[in-house]
Nucleic acid binder design. Structure first.
Lengths: 208, 208, 208, 208
DNA sequence: CATGAATGAGAATTCATTCAT
DNA sequence: GATGAATGAATTCTCATTCAT
């Protein structure tokens, strides 16, 4: 009741932050196990230990939680990518580093996500993509499309080029996560080589 | 009473075939608009105009309808791909033709699927992939993985290679469908060039 | 088409009789396995091999089939009991013979009913009482009540006496069926002794 | 705010208890009128006036409600019977008192059950046995079987003897309930006399 | 009459969301 | 702001029954 008003860090605010975080954590787990569509708000709440109604003090729906999770990923990833964008190097470099950044993020996410799960869970049918990954993916996609559109890359159908890069990154990245140990460098090398080789092999001209 | 016995063509059989088809069509639409997960059996039934129970005279679940749809795609596509596999040409040729076949199938499917939809529908959040495409995609994936594993392709990490090919085909294919007119040849040219160039740029050795 | 009109024994009529019987047989089995309440018309039809609609050409409902089955039992049993009733012997004799008759009927029914079932059935949770038994039971009940009411038995509360006899017959009969070999004579001896002893022990007078 | 902590008596707890009871009451009625098998969860809910989903906050199924009802009966009856069992008197006494206890319970149950029902109901096809009675019946059955098996009763086929006692108790008990006024003592006298007389009349020896 | 697909009422159950406490 | 029971619409699925063939 008596509290300096610098920052809201009273017990109330602490619990608020904790609850918000608890919901996010639970949602991440549930989405990971059941997939977004099959997950229900109840699933998330249940794992939280909170009361059903409390959920709605923080988020209005499953969608909103998803967005928050995605935001979180994007927020963490954005600076990294921004550095890359502004560095203004050659296309080769940019692609390689963007992919490394993306793969590293995937690996981190994946590891922490797998690690966080409780041991003796029933049927944790781990699903592929987290909201965070999806968001980061979108960022990378934008970056590549930008780069190509700005002519940093070769003159070909830039939309298709971006699509191809995206496709390679997505599929190789997913495959990478299935291997033990997860070798980000090797996967990134592969993906970058594939992209750069592929781009070189394109006929000049064209473009959307 | 006098009737050639080619096929059962009584009125009963006719409506049966029609109903089965109506369900498949409705399902295709609903899956397309809502996505598989969000679709319900009710949605499908509603669109057919049939009674609720009738659905279950034909399919036991949403899953079964999906499978039927996918089967349909696979059945139509399989012979094409088989021809390619048995022709035994060079890797370049195989890749290009497989992609052409896949893109052509996508275009066909997509056109008929978009065309069939009624004009003034509410909320047609058209989703990307149809069950048919998914099935065909799986076929192509197998084919490419086979080809690479059999050494028809260059000696690199064949799993990653397949993943990369798949990624390119998927993303470029999707992009292709968004353009008017849909230009299969151009998209296939692009994807094939990208793949073949990319493969050439790979460091020899490696492999899963 | 050309047929002497003596008795309807054309093919049509034969099938009619056969179908009717098939339905009864199927119903007996289904009631036996699932119990009357849990049984559905569909279950009966399915076992019959007939078409769904055909059922309704013979019976209007599950209830009606049950009644038919019960009728069947009663019809077979009635003459036996009638003989007993008209023989006009002492109460002791009547009780004993009625019980023997009832137990024999139970044993017969039970045996044929158990025997008729196909070998490798899934989950045949055989239930206790068949419609036939129920009907026969009702007959015996009437007979005993009659006998007591007519003063053939001792002067006590005849309703309670009948109830007690019925109770003994029912429970001991059921128990009898669970033993191997089924020993009708022993069970009937027991039940009769119990009833007659019990009746003798009753205070005279009373009566509903 | 100032409140003794005996029991949770907030308004929430109160309605919870009320609802739980309302469901049990409704179920008792419905089971009574329709019989257990024919009763549906919907029937029960409808009669409570609660929302459909609310039922599932309390019980997971019709079976669970039945069990709760039966438990209730057994819980109330168990101490009575226990006293009898441990008293260790003669067989005669035991039988008589067990039957009295059982009949009293039946009468109580029946009265309260009939009394509770609203006046102008549609189709109240009152069925015979309540879950409570069924449970109590099972208890008595165990007790009698025990007593006989322990040789407290005469040396005859104890299984058949138990069966016969059970039969008498069940049928006479049911009959008792149909009379006005319900005369427990008379019915119990009758049943006990019948049993004890019957037992005396049995040939010694035998036994399952 | 036999057939068997169509019908649609109704049963069980789940779930997002509200709201009194 | 937390709680958690109540709500009732929505979903899946079954079944008795009808009726065109």
């Amino acid at each position: 009741m008596s509290q300096v008003a610098y920052l809201p860090v009273g017990k109330r605010e602490q619990t608020k932050v904790q609850n918000r975080q608890a919901i996010l954590d639970a949602a991440r787990e549930v989405f990971g196990e059941l997939g977004y569509d099959a997950s229900t708000v109840r699933d998330i709440i249940r794992r939280t230990g909170l009361a059903a109604g409390t959920f709605y003090n923080y988020y209005r729906s499953k969608e909103e939680v998803f967005a928050a999770l995605a935001d979180d990923g994007a927020r963490r990833f954005a600076p990294i990518l921004k550095g890359l964008r502004t560095k203004g190097g050659a296309f080769e470099e940019f692609v390689r580093e963007a992919i490394v950044a993306y793969f590293e993020f995937m690996a981190d996410e994946h590891v922490s996500w797998v690690a966080r799960r409780p041991a003796g869970e029933a049927h944790p049918h781990i699903q592929g993509e987290t909201p965070e990954m999806a968001a980061v993916f979108a960022e990378v996609k934008d970056a590549i499309e930008d780069a190509i559109a700005q002519g940093k890359g070769p003159a070909a159908d830039s939309e298709y080029m971006a699509a191809a890069c995206i496709g390679i990154a997505r599929e190789v990245g997913e495959k990478m996560l299935t291997r033990r140990p997860i070798d980000v460098a090797a996967a990134a090398d592969f993906a970058a080589a594939m992209i750069l080789g592929g781009v070189k092999g394109l006929p000049a001209g064209g473009g959307a």
